[in-house]
Amino acid sequence: MSFWPEFLMIASVHLLAVASPGPDFAIVLRYAVRFGRRAAIFASLGIGLAILLHVTYSLVGIGVIIKTTPWLFQLLTVLAAGYLLYLAQGALRAQAPSAGDAVALEQQTRPAGLKAFTAGFITNGLNPKATLFFLSLFAVIISAETPFSYKVIYGIYMALATASWFCLLSFLLTNSKIRGFLLLKGYWFDRLMGVLLLALAVKLLFSSFVDGS
């Protein structure tokens, strides 16, 4: 079968999905504002690596088990919502820094790498919407006759494309012209992200219990 038509279809659908606002965008924006470019890039890499998790269980069939086992899918949703709530409460408590605190905030970018990477990985890895997206992708767009090696290439591409998109977003959000402003006024963005994360968590829980009822 032809590789390129299917690949281009997957790339187009994936681009629309990754560019739409959601938990991944909120996490990258929060780390970019609060901790700077390095932390935001680490979060982006974590999100990209988590894509391979979704691809792997879609390829081996575990994703179907998750989708067809209501209690397991609901548990995944609750865990994702709980993690978003945990991140939200930290963001909502952000305080306005003094002028001298800007330097301290700049220095916070150093040790935040692993934490940001983990946050990005967990946020995407536990996202039930990502689970449904990749299940749909492999069931509807990718043909059953597509060679396994092609599917692996698709998965690697989507992981790299996702990480690249959010890394680009990290650079844009931490441009030097707005870095000083974000360091001093970024707590408002932090609080806004807290509200967004809270809303996403509530939406996840609501949809989970409505669909499960």
Rank of each mutant, 00 (worst) to 15 (best):
A102F: 00
G61E: 10
D24E: 12
K115L: 13
E106W: 08
T69A: 12
M193A: 08
F25P: 06
L59Y: 02
R110L: 14
L184I: 05
G113F: 08
D24M: 05
E6L: 07
P5F: 01
F181R: 09
I142A: 00
T77Q: 11
R38Q: 14
S208M: 06
A43S: 13
A43P: 04
A119M: 06
I66N: 06
V140R: 14
L15W: 09
P147F: 05
V202C: 14
I27D: 08
A116H: 11
S149Y: 10
L105W: 02
L75V: 10
I10T: 07
A11C: 02
A91W: 05
Y150F: 15
F181A: 13
S143M: 06
W165K: 05
F148V: 09
G125Y: 05
L84V: 09
P147Y: 06
V13R: 15
T146E: 14
K203C: 04
D211G: 13
G61P: 07
M193S: 07
F3I: 03
R191Y: 11
V18K: 02
N127H: 00
F189A: 15
A199G: 12
P5M: 00
L87N: 13
A80H: 01
H54N: 04
F42Y: 12
L160H: 11
G113V: 06
E145L: 08
I66A: 11
A39I: 00
I156A: 14
T162F: 04
G36R: 03
R34S: 15
A50Q: 03
L200T: 03
V152Q: 02
Q107E: 11
V195S: 06
A94K: 01
A116K: 10
I141P: 14
G82Y: 09
P97D: 00
M193N: 07
L198A: 15
F3L: 10
L173P: 08
L173Y: 07
L192I: 04
L196S: 14
S208H: 03
S164H: 05
G46C: 03
L45R: 06
F134V: 04
T56A: 15
A91P: 09
F42M: 07
G22S: 02
H14P: 06
G180H: 01
H54W: 04
Y150T: 09
L173Q: 07
G22I: 00
Y86V: 07
T123Q: 08
A26V: 07
T162D: 12
A119W: 05
A40H: 11
A119L: 06
Q108F: 02
S2P: 15
F148M: 11
Y154P: 05
L172I: 10
K67F: 08
A91L: 07
I65G: 13
G155R: 03
T109H: 08
R191H: 11
L132N: 02
S208W: 00
L72R: 08
F42S: 11
S12Q: 10
L184V: 07
Y86M: 08
G194E: 12
I47D: 08
F189N: 02
P111H: 10
I41M: 14
R38I: 03
R34G: 15
M1V: 08
